[in-house]
Design a protein around this nucleic acid. Structure first.
Length: 971
RNA sequence: GGGCGGUUAGCUCAGUUGGCUAGAGCACCUGCCUUACAAGCAGGGGGUCACAGGUUCAAGUCCUGUACCGCCCACCA
């Protein structure tokens, strides 16, 4: 690198240089053998569905700030990168693409071929994502990139599944899935589009098997209200609220289901809404108090069915037609037989007609309600009963009892040695900390109410379930490598074999014996849950695992606290007996200027690479860090910009702030470089007032920034650094030392302090702005390799900023006196400048100034006359404690204990106006304070120091007022 | 429906355990291409702290209620 900094700040150039430097040095590589306590962050693996958006940029900027700071503090750091296969989301994206481009559906391909197509997509997007992260400056250990479906992670998945299966935590169970009858596929919850559609409530009468006497009347039937009459064929109960006054008489009685003739019970269940025609709740207004229960075709009814052990009767075929081939046995021979083969909507109409003709249709009411539709076929989805694999989350695990105990956790039904318990306990014990802590509740409530986890998905893209099955009961196939289990199913006994990873030969062997592998894949979150240790090579006992697990902090968005964070804790505890991280930092979600989520469809998204192009990565990071307070959402107003290559893209004025700061940093550094070329020798380092002041400010900033970063604050430290660098170092210190740079005798100390302060500033700014700081640091190194202040403050040298030592605050350099004195100088300069502007003195003109000040202030000003003259454009400055004669024709500014006269400039009119205004303000202030002090209650009840400071303030203002009045008179 | 956050200058946001005249950046006005920086420098204007009550000597800050904006989760006979 050349010594001179280029005149213009060009982010893209320094980004390239710094990336090369770090790559050559291997700065991000984690070495488990190296010294230092470990500090580990695992990246929330981005989905390979698409390129990264601004939310990712935020997420990863924050992680990079944390890891870079710890690296500089000498920790043995690992930031583990990688991507997530994102099962359904990725498969869907690719299916859409292939359908649009080739007109082919998934089912037009062999499974392996189609998975290969998704793999291609994954390769493309993984490369894009990794490149984006690199461009953002993320200091991940790029040699360790993992993918949730790569061999290493797959081994961990197989191992965990096997462990769960061995511990009898995995079982086969029924579940209602979102079924698209048109495409005959299962949809994820977020693939269901909710639309409000006009419909009806049909009120159907179900006769009692035997009439019941109720309130001196004989009840022959009950009326249920339904929006889906066709499902009545599968009804297996009618439910009513136990609080319903009729419940005593009716619960337990039997009904005869019309059409089918099935006898079904009336059961009591809290879920049923009590009827209330006056209610604001629509459901209560429409309710009859009786709810038909169809466990096979409605999620709530499924739950009710479980609670009352009801029969589950599926009356539909996968294409949505009425059928008795899928679990319905009493159709043939009944009046319901006529509906077999009808489409569900055709059947709806026919059934309503039948009820009407039989006099069992009480009424029909218009009702607009929400119906889930398939995002693909746009037909209403059908809750459809299917067999799935589950993980039991509240089942006590015997072999974990010693470690975790067997108690129920406080006020819950969660055993300490269940999966849910293992995830919940560390939070309750305070071992796991979530910042901001308001999210503790999310995590806790979710785990307390957790239900068993359905882990199978009817997809092709994912980890195929490592279970082989064969109908009937078969003896244990072999003693090693498998776990063997016989389960009861709808089709009688089935034997399941779970095969451990690493037994491919065995898999082939059993397949040749007629064992069939389950074709479903695992829920994406299953592999994500293992991310903190699968990436480190578990179940192998690797050095990396030994060194870097448990990790330190997880940084993510709140939407996945439950689905992801809690499951990582769960699996970390279960597999390794320890939580995967102590701290969870939850950052804000970025919204656009109107508070909407950023999304492709709204066209309000921002591409991080566009911002890097236009503003530079550092500017982007600055803006993102500055936005990160502990609030829940942050807004980013969107505006169009034109990129260097002519494209238009979304941007935000927020990034300008970062770019402006980088520009300031660049130019201040250029100034420094220009003045550090020939370092003047010094016998003994003699610090002047401004040196002591800037060192004091610097070290207070070091203390502040370090503590804030320890507390996961991001906005505060970058703002503190901004203020220190711009408003103190640039606005004042650089200006104050300019004259010294021309004076060989005074130059040496200023040069050394300047180099030192700049270096420390770069170090603290580096986690936020890695590129520009490294670029400047390299120049500084070649110009002036050693920058400590001998005997005052040490600063270990480093050949690159990325691994330079984080500065330590030295309290001995805090200098309140110097800060006070500089404040006096700054105030005086401020007043002189104000008078100059108000009286329209051209900037180039030098003025003569006389100051009258208290003894203390006069002492300070008297010793700093040169400083003031240089900065305020003063040719002659005299300072007195008493003024024999008021300077002629002078404008005056009155401050606390000070009067400043600028000679020969007075614009009488402006001067009078200004003094009158000040007089008014002072009078108002005095009145206010006098009122306060005149209040008996204030004086007696407020803290003495508050009263004291009010008194002092009053005295001050009175004195100033007197000065103002005197000067008004003199005009 | 449950949970949570927000409402402070035209815009985006700070504002510690209640305590000087409520701050910053952008935008705006005035003057400056002053030898690091016009992406800059100096000076300036601009706020009934959403609304209504309450506690207190004192409320942007604490409590209660209302309104609006938004997020997450669950659900929609």
């Amino acid at each position: 690198m050349t010594q001179e900094l280029s005149k213009v700040y060009e982010p893209n150039k320094i980004e390239k240089e710094a990336l090369e430097l770090w790559a050559n040095k291997g700065s991000f590589a984690a070495d488990p053998k190296a010294p230092g306590d470990s500090y580990t962050i695992v990246i929330p693996p981005p989905n390979v569905t698409a390129a990264l958006h601004l939310g990712h940029a935020l997420n990863n900027t924050l992680q990079d700030i944390l890891i870079r700071m710890r690296r500089m503090q000498g920790k043995n750091t690992l930031w583990m990168p990688g991507t997530d296969h994102a099962g359904i989301a990725t498969q869907t994206v690719v299916e859409k693409r292939i359908l649009a481009e080739e007109g082919k559906r998934r089912t037009d391909f062999e499974r392996e071929v189609f998975v290969g197509r998704i793999q291609q997509w994954k390769d493309e997007y993984e490369a894009k994502i990794v490149n984006q992260l690199k461009m953002m400056g993320c200091s991940c250990d790029w040699d360790r990139v993992r993918f949730t479906m790569d061999e290493v992670c797959a081994k961990a998945v197989r191992q965990v599944f096997f462990k769960l299966f061995s511990d009898e935590l995995i079982y086969r169970g029924k579940r209602l899935v979102n079924w698209d009858p048109a495409t005959q596929t299962v949809l994820a919850d977020d693939e269901v589009e909710h639309k409000t559609v006009p419909g009806f409530f049909w009120y159907l009468r179900y006769p009692l098997v035997e009439p019941v006497d109720l309130n001196a009347e004989t009840v022959q039937y009950v009326t249920v209200a339904t929006t889906r009459p066709e499902t009545m064929l599968g009804d297996t109960a009618v439910a009513m609220n136990p609080a319903d006054p009729r419940a005593d008489a009716l619960v337990g009685k039997m009904l005869r289901l019309p059409l089918v003739g099935r006898e079904i019970p009336i059961v009591a269940d809290q879920h049923v809404v009590l009827p209330d025609p006056e209610s604001e709740d629509e459901k209560a207004r429409f309710s009859t108090g009786f709810l038909k229960v169809t466990p096979a075709h409605d999620p709530n009814d499924w739950e009710i069915g479980l609670r009352h052990d009801l029969e589950v009767i599926n009356v539909m075929a996968p294409d949505g037609s009425i059928s008795d081939q899928y679990g319905w046995e009493d159709a043939v021979g009944s009046d319901a037989e006529q509906f077999l083969g009808m489409d569900r909507f055709e059947a709806r109409k026919a059934i309503v007609d039948w009820f009407e003709s039989e006099g069992l249709l009480e009424k029909v009411v218009d009702y607009a309600h929400e119906v889930g539709h398939s995002y693909r076929s746009h037909v209403p989805i059908e809750p459809y009963l299917s067999d799935q694999w589950y993980v039991a989350v509240k089942k006590p695990i015997e072999n974990q009892a010693d470690k975790f105990g067997t108690d129920l956790l406080a006020d819950t039904d969660v055993p300490a040695n269940s999966l849910a318990g293992m995830a919940l306990k560390p939070l309750l014990d305070g071992k796991l900390r979530i910042t901001p802590d308001r999210y503790n509740k999310n995590y806790q409530v979710w785990l307390e109410n957790l239900r068993d986890w359905p882990i199978s998905r009817q997809l092709w893209w994912g980890h195929q379930i490592p279970v082989w099955c064969k109908e009937g009961e078969h003896p244990n196939r072999c003693e090693y490598g498998t776990v063997h289990r016989v389960m009861d199913t709808d089709n009688g006994k089935v034997t399941y074999l779970c095969v451990k990873p690493g037994f491919e030969e065995l898999e082939k062997a059993i397949e040749s014996e007629g064992w069939v592998r389950d074709c479903d894949v695992l829920d994406t979150w299953f592999s994500s849950a293992l991310w903190p240790f699968s990436t480190l090579g578990w179940p192998d006992e690797t050095e990396a695992l030994e060194k870097y697990y448990p990790g330190s902090v997880l940084c993510t968005a709140r939407e996945i606290i439950t689905l992801w964070v809690s499951r990582m804790v769960m699996m970390g505890q279960y597999c390794l007996g320890d939580i995967p991280f102590e701290d969870v930092f939850i950052h804000a979600m970025i919204q656009d200027g109107q508070g909407r989520k950023m999304s492709k469809s709204l066209g309000n998204g921002i591409d991080p690479l566009d911002i890097i192009d236009s503003h530079g990565a550092d500017a982007m990071r600055f803006a993102l860090a500055q936005m990160t307070t502990l609030t829940q959402d942050v807004r980013m107003p969107i505006e169009k910009m034109t990129l260097p290559d002519g494209r238009t893209a979304n941007s935000s004025p927020k990034f300008d702030i970062g770019r402006n700061f980088c520009n300031k940093l660049w130019n201040a550094s250029r100034f420094a470089m220009g003045n550090l070329e020939n370092i003047a020798a010094v016998d003994e380092l003699k610090l002047e007032l401004e040196d002591k002041w800037i060192l004091s400010r610097l070290h207070k900033t070091i203390a502040e920034v370090t503590q804030q970063l320890d507390e996961f604050k991001f906005s505060e430290p970058i703002n503190a650094l901004y203020k220190f660098f711009w408003n103190e170092l640039c606005d004042w210190y650089l200006e104050l030392i300019k004259p010294r740079m021309w004076d060989e005798r005074r130059k040496g100390a200023a040069q050394r302090v300047l180099a030192y302060v700049l270096d420390c500033s770069l170090r603290m700014l580096h986690p936020f702005l890695p590129y520009i700081t490294e670029g400047i640091y390299q120049h500084l190194n070649s110009l002036m390799p050693e920058r400590g202040l001998a005997g005052i403050a040490d600063l270990p040298a480093a050949d690159a900023l990325v691994t330079a030592a984080w500065p330590q605050a030295v309290e001995g350099l805090f200098d309140g006196a110097a800060e006070d004195e500089i404040a006096v100088v700054q105030d005086a300069i401020g007043l002189i400048r104000e008078l100059r502007t108000k009286n329209q003195v051209p900037p180039k003109d030098k003025v003569e100034v006389t100051i009258k000040a208290s003894e203390e202030l006069a002492g300070i000003i008297g010793s700093q006359i040169d400083l003031i003259c240089n900065i305020a454009g003063v040719k002659q400055l005299s300072c007195f404690t008493e003024l024999a004669v008021r300077p002629n024709n002078a404008a005056v500014a009155v401050g606390r204990g000070i009067e400043i006269f600028v000679h020969d400039v007075v614009d009488t009119e402006a001067e009078r106006k200004r003094l009158e205004k000040q007089k008014e303000q002072l009078e108002k202030g005095i009145k206010g304070v006098e009122g306060k002090l005149g209040n008996e209650n204030f004086v007696s009840r407020a803290k003495p120091e508050v009263v004291e400071s009010e008194r002092a303030r009053l005295a001050d203002m009175k004195e100033q007022l007197a000065d103002v009045l005197k000067n008004l008179e003199a005009l």
